[in-house]
Design a protein around this nucleic acid. Structure first.
Length: 652
RNA sequence: GCCGAAGUAGCUCAGCGGUAGAGCACUCGAUUCGUAAUCGAGCGGUCGUCGGUUCAAAUCCGACCUUCGGCUCCA
């Protein structure tokens, strides 16, 4: 067969030849350096036969794909080490059943069903064995078995592998990889690719955690133990990753919330129900005020609705059958059932319905900072990011079909404006589509309304030039979903907000408007939340800024530090003047040394520290120590106020 | 909800069978100081809860609660 190289040259190779054969033919240097290959765009190792006529690029340890190869092999090395550990504890090799062991971002994991649970203390033991196996430089070898042979290998021994083999599509090659021999080695059902020997694995790996994971991600199936590992090709990359982890801990909104007195969660109030302390509440109020002003100028009308609603409301909306288990239990009053509201839409629909509407009223945009309660599973709760009570930056846009695209464009533009003001640069949309095949009971039948809805959103995205990706299966039962994803400073992707196009609720609630021809028509509804929930947005933003709020948001904008008590009077005078301009300032009048006061202001991440001593008192100035700025400046009070007000106006 | 780990003073943590400790915070006193911690004293905990083992439990065992890391879920 022929293989084509990147420079256009072709190589004549026997059938079933591998990338190792190709590299050998090119030259001994490359044969030695080769670690894998890209054939027709797919990653191959040195052991798998190449497809005839493939376009081939040989990879060395310098290529980024190298990581995928050794991470995958490390999963096998770890499985071998775990087997060994249990053998030493008196279990037979068959007692340890293996499920899947894939490569993930930064590393790998393996799902294992062990005869007795692994514990955290076992990780270093396993890791040591892994290092030994890597040091032994066991060669890897690939072989193929027939379906019958493969099944025989695992029948009655490993139900997970058996199921995997049974689920392979007919005609698919069933390959195995073996490292070492039967005495000291390990064989696994695997499609590869792998490094050619365990010695080619860089020693920069670590086992990080052990966690439960359902077999095939299905909560009705057995729970396995998952061991997570990370692996990099250099120490620098490993160190960078570890640094990132530390940084993430430092920025964790739960930690910052505690340190900066922003919010707390009390067992006595209930899990997942955050309490906003004065400083956190102040920042949240600023966010709300900002959104309120913004939405006013974008033609939204604010409404208020109660926190509970009649059961009928949720039968009408269609949520009750789907989400009953995820709602707080009903409250029975006078023989009628009420629910804590899990979302605001039905209430808003009733506001729409309260008056007849003409096409001239549309689009009608109803907004509310609506507090909702959802019975989230206890294991999913996490600070403000995932609570059981939270307040949405919610709005529903009622419009005609013809207006959908235009309204979506406005929504996308609003996102742009708001996120820009908060310095969130790296964000994009994710259009979630229905999966009719695998989840017909949720999405119903495919039809023109779905198609129209999806086309309208796509058109809006294209027209604004917004960045977006598409995903299947995550739509809601009433329409496609448009999530907003943002990348944190540390590179982690997070969901901040979610919007939906809804062509079903209008009918369910009997909403209508009179069109130009005097006919009744049903409006389409856009559910949108720019900041998602204030709780989650606040958490995201807190981590984004590491608690360094810009001046306009900071609960305390400046702390005045008098050098000694005789400067207190002047300090209060400056404070009073700033306060007249609605600037938020505090005088640190504790009987402490100025160094201690400055340190505390830094730890509290106060943007400005104003030091006043003899010089300042005499010249009616302040000495400004700005956070993250090396040098101090002395400036007049008018200059200071001017600068501060300007920064507030510019949201810096 | 499921798997694993952890819960000791307001916070960060030590103690791991012989009836509770440090630093910070807080209160009081002294110090009045020029850009990240002045000194001293005091206050503060039925060691998550309940039960068991023991002459004796923060410490060992069990159940439950909460938090954390995952899995599942997210209208």
């Amino acid at each position: 067969m022929n293989i084509y190289l990147p420079d256009g040259k072709s190589l004549e190779l026997p059938e079933q030849a591998t990338a190792a054969d190709a590299a050998r033919l090119i030259g001994p240097g490359l044969a030695k350096a080769a670690i894998g290959a890209i054939a027709d765009g797919d990653l191959y190792d040195l052991m798998k036969p190449l497809p005839s006529g493939a376009r081939l690029r040989i990879l060395t340890e310098k290529d980024p794909e190298y990581a995928q190869l050794f991470r995958h092999t490390l999963a096998h090395v770890m499985a071998q080490a775990v087997r060994e550990l249990y053998r030493e504890r008196g279990f037979s090799p068959e007692a340890v059943k293996l499920a899947i062991g894939p490569v993930i971002e930064n590393g790998f994991y393996y799902d294992i069903d062990a005869p007795e649970p692994l514990r955290e203390e076992d990780l270093p033991l396993i890791e040591a064995k892994m290092h030994r196996i890597v040091g032994e430089n066991l060669p890897l070898h690939r072989f193929v078995l027939s379906r019958r042979e493969a099944l025989e290998r695992y029948q009655g021994i490993d139900p997970y592998k058996t199921e995997l083999i049974e689920n392979l599509p007919p005609g698919e090659e069933i390959s195995f990889y073996q490292q070492g021999d039967d005495q000291n080695g390990f064989t696994d059902l695997c499609r590869g690719p792998h490094v050619p020997s365990t010695g080619r694995i860089p020693p920069y790996f670590k086992l990080t955690s052990i966690a439960g994971a359902y077999w095939r991600g299905d909560s009705s199936r057995p729970m396995l133990q998952r061991i997570y590992g990370i692996a990099f090709s250099s120490k620098a990359e490993l160190d960078h990753y570890l640094w990132q982890q530390e940084e993430a801990k430092r920025r964790d909104h739960r930690k910052l919330g505690q340190e900066l007195d922003l919010f707390t969660i009390s067992e006595e109030v209930g899990k997942g129900l955050p309490l906003w302390l004065p400083k956190g509440a102040f920042v949240r109020r600023q966010l709300e005020q900002y959104m309120y002003d913004k939405e006013q100028t974008h033609g939204y009308h604010y409404v208020y609705t109660p926190h509970i609603g009649h059961a009928k409301l949720y039968y009408t909306s269609g949520h009750l059958p789907y989400y009953k288990d995820d709602m707080y239990a009903p409250i029975e009053i006078e023989g009628e059932e009420y629910y804590l509201k899990p979302m605001n839409c039905p209430h808003h629909h009733m506001i729409y319905k309260a008056r007849p509407h003409s096409y001239r009223d549309l689009p009608l945009r109803l907004a509310e900072f609506g507090t909702v309660y959802r019975f989230e599973l206890s294991g999913t709760l996490s600070g403000l990011t995932r609570g059981r009570g939270f307040t949405q930056n919610d709005a529903h846009i009622y419009c005609s079909k013809a207006q959908v695209k235009g309204e979506f464009i406005r929504v996308i533009q609003l996102f742009d404006e708001v996120y820009k003001d908060f310095g969130i640069q790296d964000y994009w949309f994710r259009l979630s589509l229905p999966d009719f095949e695998n989840n017909p009971e949720k999405f119903g039948e495919p039809g023109p309304h779905w198609e129209e809805a999806i086309a309208a959103i796509r058109a809006a995205l294209d027209e604004t030039g917004a960045k977006y990706v598409e995903g299947i299966g995550e739509a809601t039962f009433y329409g496609p979903k448009l999530d907003v994803q943002a990348r944190t400073v540390l590179g982690k992707e997070e969901s901040v907000a979610t919007n939906q196009l809804d062509f079903i609720s209008g009918q369910r609630f009997g909403l209508e408007f009179t069109n130009e021809r005097g006919e009744k028509e049903t409006p389409v509804i856009i559910h949108r939340a720019i900041m998602g929930s204030f709780d989650r947005f606040f958490a995201f933003y807190l981590e984004h800024t590491a608690g360094d709020f810009p001046l306009w948001l900071s609960p305390t904008q400046a702390v005045i530090v008098p050098i000694s008590d005789r400067h207190l009077e002047y300090a209060e005078e400056v404070a009073a003047e700033l306060r007249q301009h609605r600037l938020r300032v505090e005088v640190d009048d504790r009987p402490e040394r100025m160094n201690a006061k400055i340190r505390d202001a830094e730890l509290q991440k106060i943007p400005l520290v104003l030091v006043v001593g003899d010089k300042e008192t005499q010249t009616h100035t302040v000495n400004l120590r700005e956070r993250h700025v090396k040098d101090q400046r002395t400036l007049s009070r008018a200059e200071l106020i001017g600068e501060m007000l300007q920064r507030v106006a510019e949201r810096r």
